Amino acid sequence: MAYVQQARTTADPATYERAEKALRRSLAVQSDDNTNAQIGMGALAAARHDFPTALTWAQKATTSDPYNPVAYGVLADAYTQLGQYPASYDAVQRMNDLRPDAPALARASYTFELRGQTDQAVALMRRSLEAASTAGERSFAHAVLSTLALQTGNARQAWIEAEAGLRNAPGDSALLEARARAETARGRTDMAIADYQAAIAIAPLPHYLLGLGELQQSLGNRKAAEAQYAVLRGQEAIRRSGHTPADTDAILFEADHGQPARAVTMAQEALKTRQFIAVHDAYAWALHQAGHNAEALAQADQALALGTRSALFLYHRAVIHDSLGDVAAAHADLRAALRTEPHFHPLHAASARALLNRIDNTP
């Protein structure tokens, strides 16, 4: 489990192999009722975005020990990413019934975030922070609270949450990235660039690289942006060679900065094992960029079906509506996106305002 966590925080795929070797050995020593190893295998499969396998291991773990709350956490994660949301809510409830600790409360918060109920999500994440017993749990809670603040357009509160977390964990890459996004929203781009660079130095995760690249591009620093995009292309080549599903960041990057047709193929492959709303959104945008707007709208609707408050999802659907000639629907989605999070993206927020202005001024 330590190897799984290390891989998540360092973006080193070789660590997954060490995790699997240790877990397989544990299962060889004790094949029956080895709940901890089953939980580990489930978490490892989820980290690799193999959610059907994660679900299988989580079900084994909850069968071997029906009173293990951690097993229900892995089960909930798998159900969520497979798009089986009611089942995931039930698993989260069972986890909280067994032990309402920081991880259980954090997952409960996420169930409300997915449904666009941000106030409840914030309240539960604050309870998770209060219940945190480790530095990692506290850092995670502050990072999520920062993200939730941004989703309501409160960039100052987002910065406060990230800053609070960094006082106790100055080397936490997720908190550095959270502060960078808050600084971007507040117009403090030099500080944002520095935080992104610090986060990438710790863990060159795709969404950090894409965030910095698009921020640099928005500032006209094309050479600096291309430096980040080159790393992303290298990571994508490694992913393809390993035949692992693409994450949403890779799909969106390909759609915006590469070949939209390839992004469509990547999204189709990802959906085979991950029917999550973010994958539907990435697929929608890839389809739009490739000129398939009718298909794109169906995917964009699925991405927003739970009521998730995502300005990016709303922007994507607005552009698709506009491309299909439904100006009223595009206008409604644009207003909702900019009301939800005015600075939701370094490039697309400006495009959203420009499109809304064009619609407003068209007779």
Rank of each mutant, 00 (worst) to 15 (best):
Y72F: 08
G73V: 04
V74Q: 14
V74A: 14
V74N: 14
L75P: 10
D77Y: 10
D77M: 09
A78Q: 09
Y79P: 02
T80D: 15
T80I: 09
Q81P: 04
Q81G: 10
Q81K: 12
L82N: 12
L82G: 10
L82E: 09
G83Q: 13
G83F: 05
G83N: 11
G83P: 03
Q84G: 12
Y85F: 11
Y85L: 08
P86N: 15
P86K: 10
P86A: 14
A87Y: 11
S88Y: 11
S88A: 15
S88D: 13
Y89L: 14
Y89V: 14
D90L: 08
D90H: 05
D90N: 13
V92C: 14
V92A: 15
R94I: 07
R94P: 11
R94V: 06
M95P: 09
M95E: 15
N96M: 09
D97R: 12
L98N: 15
L98A: 15
R99F: 10
R99D: 15
R99Y: 12
P100V: 02
D101P: 05
A102L: 05
A104S: 15
L105H: 15
A106Y: 07
A106I: 04
A106E: 15
A106S: 14
R107E: 14
R107S: 12
R107Q: 14
R107N: 13
A108L: 13
S109P: 07
S109K: 10
Y110P: 06
Y110F: 12
Y110G: 10
T111P: 07
F112Y: 11
E113P: 03
E113C: 03
E113N: 14
L114K: 11
L114W: 05
L114R: 15
L114F: 07
R115W: 04
G116S: 13
Q117R: 06
Q117G: 04
D119H: 09
Q120V: 04
Q120S: 10
Q120T: 08
A121S: 07
V122Q: 01
A123C: 06
L124H: 00
L124Q: 05
M125T: 11
R126T: 01
R126Q: 09
R127F: 00
R127H: 06
S128T: 00
L129H: 06
L129S: 12
E130Q: 06
A131S: 02
S133T: 05
S133V: 01
A135G: 05
A135Q: 04
A135E: 09
G136C: 05
R138W: 01
S139L: 00
F140G: 07
F140K: 00
A141H: 01
A141R: 00
H142L: 01
H142S: 00
A143M: 09
A143S: 13
V144K: 08
V144P: 00
V144Y: 02
L145R: 00
L145S: 02
S146W: 02
S146F: 00
S146T: 02
T147D: 14
T147C: 05
L148T: 02
L148P: 02
L148R: 03
A149V: 04
A149C: 06
A149E: 13
L150S: 08
L150Q: 10
L150M: 10
Q151E: 13
Q151G: 12
T152M: 06
G153I: 07
G153Y: 07
N154R: 03
N154Q: 11
N154L: 06
A155I: 03
A158L: 03
A158Y: 01
W159R: 11
W159P: 00
